[in-house]
Write a protein that binds this DNA or RNA. Structure first.
Lengths: 345, 345
DNA sequence: CTGTTAGCGCTTTCAG
DNA sequence: CTGAAAGCGCTAACAG
């Protein structure tokens, strides 16, 4: 920067200003500086700027896995918003493990992010305490924790499945099962199962049936395996909710393979409104949770929180609930009863 | 850090050493330091360290979109490897736009990454020159550029489709079409189309037919729309190659919807070996390019290149070709001819 | 094995 | 609008 300053015949400070504020410098000076930057191929060093200004321009985002379009949509939403203020996202993946999350948080904090966004509301004790004492805005997403660390942008995973169950009931299904991954650190999956079980009781259904196959992330293949186990376990089952659209797709494809009609023999619903759910055949009934919207809301809130922090007046904890929607598609369409198609008396 | 040093009764330098080398400090001193770190809740500031040591510990990775499991697999592979040396990945998405790529590169370079990994071998002139003069290792992936900037870890997109075409021919298909997105910045998609057209000529097929629908990224829905257009345009078509598995899935699902048997009426093949391709029904014939392996190879090479750079002896440009494999699945299975099922004479 | 001295490249702060 | 001085928090380099 000193070189640029010399070449433009100004001080380094003026160069610094020209490169950021644009306003605070005479147009001619500015032009001379930009010319010098061009000539020298100078590239600003933000890491030095960060040290000096104590503003790194980073926000850390922790997600279970990049390879889940719901989470990458959320990251996408966050990035879009943060980009508008020139802030960058530092992504970390926890691989659905809380221990791993703790490690990633520890590493991230060494980079001095100006805010940190985590997925879910369940963390190790040490992770939680690191977040609490980090002195930066914290947002938990994809959940509505009872005792949040800071801000929250999410929804109740249990409630989404309760709603879905209510709709299945409304459509006439009574024997409904649930397909999930093996229990572990995937609390969101677990919450959805809880929603299922609560709904079974609340709706007075005769029995519940949960099939757990595969360690999270639950894949298409797990869904295929699970549906076979389900039919063996409970031949009378009429419908099944899968913990995600991917496993729902697997279940449906396995049904095709075995000649079981969907939804005739078995209705199938998923969660997450993945792209394939809308376009596969039959299209999959699911719960949309607005993954992108979660990201955008989170980004917007983070920007406010950071601005408040910089101004020395931390934002009081906010709690934003993202609406979810049950989307009815072909995979649960009730075949018309003979009576229904008969002419009215 | 000064506080920690004081509390442990040592100098800041010793604290710094204890926190990194671990070896270069007496065990007791080390323990005292860690105790002080614990007591004070001290967290190392890597951004200061980076400025001082000129080692940021960052590698930038640019991909078209997070929301494509092929690219996120590659990022995953890169991260895994870089993690082993404590390096972090800074992800940037270009949204399949070269202009956007240029901007992202400019921003990334201000963070002083120790290496940069880009997707594809086609860039704007300014992007290319920024990469060339950045003074850090550059790796281009997912392609085999004729005039690479630095290192290359990739494969020929055209060759993958040529191979797939040869196999379709071998299986007895003669009237083969190609479904792609509208031409634009997606050079990998364009290269695949080129491979298709070269194969049509090389194999002496009577005609080619390319259906272009939708701006990249090509989605499931685009595939569905395209297949309808295809059947209208060329009713005699026997098989179609889709630019990605996602559009292949869309095409197949649309065929189901319209009662066109796959592969009986139309055989469908894709590209990328996405998870759904393996598990949907019918399973999709595709080309696997080892997305994760590309990432791992890239990560390994980047680590070597950075080590060499730090040692002052830049690694001569390497060119690593990742093998691809045509995977035959149900979506192109030839129905047995009557003659073939007849008893041998 | 440990300490001292400088200084990384920028921005804050305060004067002009 | 511009400049000078000081220092962000750490580590390289050298000395003990």
């Amino acid at each position: 920067m000193a070189d640029v300053a010399r070449r433009a015949g100004v001080s380094a400070m003026t160069v610094s200003r020209a490169l950021k504020d644009k306003s605070a410098v005479t147009p001619e000076t500015r032009d001379r500086i930009f010319q010098a930057v061009q000539d020298l191929g100078y590239v600003l060093d933000m890491s030095a700027g960060a040290l000096s200004s104590k503003k790194t321009g980073f926000v850390s985002v922790l997600i279970p896995s990049l390879n889940n379009s719901n989470f990458s949509d959320t990251v996408q939403g966050i990035s879009e918003i943060l980009d508008t203020e020139g802030m960058q996202v530092l992504i970390g993946t926890t691989n659905y493990s809380r221990v791993r999350e703790e490690q990633v948080i520890a590493t991230m904090l060494q980079r001095r992010p100006e805010g940190i966004i985590v997925t879910g509301g369940t963390h190790t004790a040490r992770a939680r305490s690191m977040l609490e004492t980090a002195g930066i805005p914290v947002i938990e997403t994809w959940d509505l924790p009872v005792a949040p660390i800071g801000h929250v942008v999410g929804f109740s995973n249990a409630a989404t499945i309760e709603d879905l169950m209510a709709r299945l009931m409304f459509w006439g299904y009574r024997r409904v099962a649930f397909i999930e991954g093996e229990p572990g650190d995937d609390t969101r999956g677990h919450d959805r199962r809880t929603g299922y079980e609560r709904a079974v009781r609340a709706l007075g259904l005769e029995r519940s049936c949960v099939i757990s196959v595969g360690r999270p992330p639950v894949t298409v293949e797990h869904g295929a395996q699970a549906v076979v186990r389900l039919i063996e376990t409970w031949p009378e089952v009429e419908a099944v909710i899968c913990v995600s659209d991917l496993s729902a797709l697997g279940a449906i494809m396995e049904c095709h393979r075995r000649g079981w009609d969907v939804p005739g023999r078995l209705a199938v619903a998923g969660f997450g409104d993945f792209q394939v759910a809308r376009h596969c055949w039959p299209s999959i009934t699911t719960v949309s949770v607005g993954s992108l919207a979660i990201g955008q809301e989170t980004g917007t809130l983070m920007l406010q929180a950071i601005a408040a922090m910089r101004a020395g007046t931390p934002l009081p904890p906010r709690r934003i609930t993202i609406p979810h929607t049950v989307i009815e598609r072909d995979s649960t369409a009730r075949q018309p009863h003979p009576a229904e198609t008969a002419p009215a008396p």
